[in-house]
């Protein structure tokens, strides 16, 4: 039986969400020493999936409100504004991410500068080689 492409992709997404929710529930179960029934995990997955729809719509709205087409961390913070504890957590995480990004950029810079240095030295060597070759040819 053939299904529309949208449906099958939705099922795949739901399955992926369900799998991850299962893993997270397992962690909680081990941590707290309680059991999750299969129905409970399925219900949490369905809630998560539908909540994503709300989040997506709201984020899109916030980005458009800021006259942007790209959603950034500020929009995500605005989404979590209602709950102060969640906002604190999100802000902390976004700061961590920003720091990581900076570090990576610096590393890239160092690498690229090092690479540049190497390339220049390589080029010099090549140039020297070429010259020597030229002289040999001559």
């Amino acid at each position: 039986r053939e299904e529309p492409a949208k449906d099958s992709s939705q099922y795949r997404l739901k399955a992926a969400v369900h799998y991850t929710v299962g893993c997270l529930c397992q962690e909680v179960a081990e941590d707290k020493g309680i059991q999750f029934s299969k129905q409970t995990i399925a219900a949490i997955s369905e809630i998560t999936f539908r909540q994503c729809e709300n989040f997506a719509k709201d984020l899109e709205m916030f980005a458009r409100h800021g006259k942007r087409t790209v959603i950034n961390s500020e929009d995500v913070k605005l989404l979590a504004r209602r709950s102060s504890s969640l906002l604190r957590y999100i802000t902390q995480k976004s700061e961590e991410l920003a720091l990581n990004n900076l570090e990576q950029k610096e590393r890239k810079k160092k690498k690229s500068s090092a690479a540049k240095g190497r390339t220049t030295s390589d080029e010099q060597v090549e140039a020297v080689m070429a010259e020597s070759e030229d002289s040999n040819m001559a």
Partner: peptide, 23 residues
Amino acid sequence: EAYTMHARRKTVEEADLELLMRR
């Protein structure tokens, strides 16, 4: 206030109110 700041404005406009009512 949050929505106005988000749009980098200092004056509350109709768009802010509409966004609020949407939420």
